[in-house]
Design a protein around this nucleic acid. Structure first.
Length: 376
DNA sequence: TCGGATT
């Protein structure tokens, strides 16, 4: 058994290609995205800074403040430079500020560095709006959008409430179709508040379902567990480390003791192995969500929570997301949940191992998620 | 007995 598990670990080892969504490009914010060149700065920001201070967006996750300063320092003398990080985790939030001494250098930096490709990202360089409380927390998260709605239509819908700084509609990485989720950043918080009042739970013109509009979280905020998982499954790892092996072993052994035979999952072929990800375009593969492999877990207890899913699936490899589906009113688990795993092989092993697993007095059913819907 | 989605 142990030997099989070790072999499996080798077979299952695949390159992790973590891509953080579609590469940002500077046209994606649409034609109505305003210039941040503040000819009439408002409130507390200094007028001088408006011509020297730049905001740099869509920086690669691993870029440091020093690297940012080095890159922009190649243009001219920098007065100050700040990479914005999450207060708690220290993770880069993917943007920063560069303040030049000379306004000419700021202009030059926009002309030469805006649109520069760094790793998987295309950075955006523009004048920073003066810092002020009124422009903070003006970013909205919008869900339930009709899949046909374009970014332009989204902006049209929201523009009645104020000046839009940026907008975006998230798309499936594989199919390119809208995920029905987007973002709108207004110039001022009060505008965002009005948009929530006016549009939350409303049907956009021609739509059949109401949309949800609320304040957005910070970009790429992950749970501490997902961060741990990411750390633990480092991108260059080819084989699971001793800890992973141990955990797998324990789990699979537990499974064996549960008197459910293991499937011959190691002989199963992986669709990822045909000719890589490109072969997946337009093909509907169960559980494949573009960002990973989505697994359906059925027969969870009413009091089940996310931690049990992390505990069960984590040992099999990179888990990026878990979700227990709860009843809106009672907040009790509706009996099922979802787990997203990065690598097909690890997901397949987890499914093969955990399907039929006895959790308390329940026997779990675990499979790739399908497109079933309860709607009529 | 197959959601919600966080650039």
């Amino acid at each position: 058994l142990n030997w099989h598990i070790l072999s499996l670990c080798v077979i299952a080892a695949m390159e992790t290609q973590l891509s953080n969504g579609p590469t940002c490009n500077n046209t994606s914010n649409g034609p109505s995205t305003i210039s941040n060149n503040c000819s009439s700065p408002v409130e507390s920001g200094s007028i001088e800074d408006s011509k020297t201070n730049l905001i740099v967006n869509y920086l690669p996750q691993n870029m440091t403040q020093e690297e940012l300063k080095s890159l922009f320092g190649s243009i001219g003398e920098i007065e100050s430079c700040k990479l914005v990080r999450d207060k708690i985790t220290g993770q880069s939030l993917g943007y920063g500020f560069v303040n030049y001494v000379d306004p000419k250098d700021a202009e030059k930096a926009i002309n030469t560095l805006n649109g520069l490709r760094l790793q998987t990202k295309t950075i955006k360089v523009s004048y920073a709006r003066p810092s002020s409380a009124s422009i903070r927390d003006a970013n909205l998260y919008v869900s339930g959008l009709p899949k046909t709605m374009t970014q332009k239509e989204l902006e049209q819908l929201f523009s009645q409430y104020g000046r839009i700084i940026t907008s975006r509609i998230l798309v499936d990485q594989v199919t390119g179709v809208s995920r029905g989720v987007g973002f709108i950043r207004f110039d001022r918080r009060v505008e965002a508040e009005e948009a929530i009042k006016g549009l939350n739970c409303q049907k956009p013109p021609g739509a059949t379902e109401p949309i949800t509009v609320k304040f957005a979280n910070n970009p790429s905020q992950k749970t501490s567990q997902a961060l741990l998982s990411q750390l633990y499954q480092s991108p260059n790892r080819r084989y699971p480390g001793p800890l992973a092996q141990q955990a797998r072993f324990v789990l699979i052994l537990t499974h064996a003791l549960n008197h459910v035979p293991l499937l011959s999952f190691y002989s199963r072929f992986s669709p990822m192995a045909i000719d890589g990800v490109t072969s997946l375009a337009g093909i509907n593969i169960p559980g494949h969500a573009g960002t990973g492999w989505c697994i359906f877990v059925y027969n969870l207890a009413p009091d089940a929570d996310e931690s049990i899913l992390w505990q069960m699936f984590g040992p099999f490899g990179a888990v990026t997301n878990v979700k227990v589906i709860r009843d809106f009113n009672t907040n009790k688990c509706k009996g099922f949940g979802f787990v997203t795993m990065t690598n097909y092989d690890e997901a397949a092993v987890a499914i093969a191992s955990l399907n039929g697993y006895r959790l308390g007095d329940r026997v779990l059913q675990v499979s790739f998620k399908t497109n079933k819907t309860h709607k009529a």
